[in-house]
Simulated assay, not measured.
Amino acid sequence: MQTTVLMLHSSLSSGRQWQGLKLALKADYQVLNPDLLGYGSNTASYPRPMQLADEASQLWPLLEGHPAASVILIGHSFGGAVALHMARTRPELFKAVLLFEPVAFHLFKTTEPALYQQVQQLSQQMLNVSSKDAAALFIDYWQGEGYFHHLPDVMQQKLTTQVGKVAADFEALSGEPATFTDYATAIHCPVLLLSGEQSQLSAQRLATMLAGVLPCVEFQTVKTGHMGPVTDAELVNAVLLEFIQRLMVTKPSHY
């Protein structure tokens, strides 16, 4: 039975962010790195307000007919939150879940209200400015002040064109009807949870809180920021590949 690897990208990105990892895995696995709604070449419509289930609805057909424990699920940022939703919804399908700072901000509503408000404020600010300024706000929040304006013009234009989807992503991230207990109860496969040492507190805090409740989790920090899978792909991919290799050889004893 061939194992499938499904890789989900962050907001304002595309499936191409995983191209290096795909090349490293494709000889031994069926590798899927789709564009999420509104990104890359995916122009399919989505409802407003959007839910993570709406994002997942276009992904489930990719896994149709797959037997239990035959899929390794990888997700980064918004894609990590979608991955958590999918793993909670159909836990029997997944052999392992690998996450780089899943931004499941709904978990902050009652546990970290100040951080939840910070994220909501960013979302509201983006709605009240031009598309280019909204893209700058979003990129600079994750990468540091002024990062957007140092990007090549063609990259700025691409991000500006697709930034409208980010508002829908925030809706889905905020409105997901799940708690830490829901994830911990449903997800019992091995989980690798990564966090960037230079990332925003909101993303770091979510990662450590999830690591504290998931029953079969391995937590690691990586010397990068929240966008590490893009800006430091070789570093992050090496950690992901090492975990997958260990997973396929033998289950670590603490699982």
Rank of each mutant, 00 (worst) to 15 (best):
A96P: 01
M86I: 09
K132G: 02
G75L: 07
Q143S: 08
G144H: 09
G144I: 06
L107D: 04
A135Y: 04
Y147F: 15
G146T: 07
D133A: 14
G79V: 08
T160F: 02
Q124I: 00
F108W: 13
Q157K: 10
M126G: 02
L99V: 06
L93G: 02
E145A: 13
Q124F: 00
H76K: 05
L159Y: 09
Q125D: 13
P152L: 12
S130M: 09
T111N: 14
Q120W: 00
Q121E: 14
V103C: 03
A83H: 11
G144E: 10
D153P: 05
A87Q: 09
V103L: 11
T111F: 06
F138I: 01
F100K: 05
L93Y: 03
T110R: 14
M155Q: 15
G75Q: 09
Q156G: 04
S131P: 02
H106G: 05
L137F: 03
L127M: 10
F148L: 12
Q118H: 11
D133V: 10
E92L: 03
T89A: 13
A135K: 08
G144R: 12
P152A: 11
V103S: 04
G75A: 09
L137R: 08
V97R: 05
L115R: 11
A104R: 09
E145D: 12
L151I: 12
H85Y: 15
Q117D: 13
V119G: 01
R88P: 01
Q121S: 14
V119D: 05
Q120F: 00
T110N: 15
G144C: 14
A134L: 12
A114I: 12
L151C: 05
P152K: 13
F105G: 00
A114F: 05
K109W: 02
A104V: 10
L84N: 03
K109A: 14
F105P: 00
K132I: 05
L122F: 00
P113V: 06
T89K: 07
Q117W: 00
H76A: 08
Q143I: 03
A114K: 12
F94G: 00
W142T: 03
A135L: 10
K132P: 01
Q157H: 09
H150A: 09
V129P: 07
G75E: 10
I139C: 05
S130E: 07
S130N: 07
A104Q: 11
V97P: 00
V154I: 14
E112Q: 15
Q143L: 11
S77M: 10
I139S: 03
E112Y: 11
R90S: 05
D140S: 05
L107E: 10
L127R: 14
H106D: 05
T89F: 10
D140K: 04
A83M: 12
L99R: 02
F100P: 00
T111Q: 15
K95F: 06
G80R: 04
G79W: 04
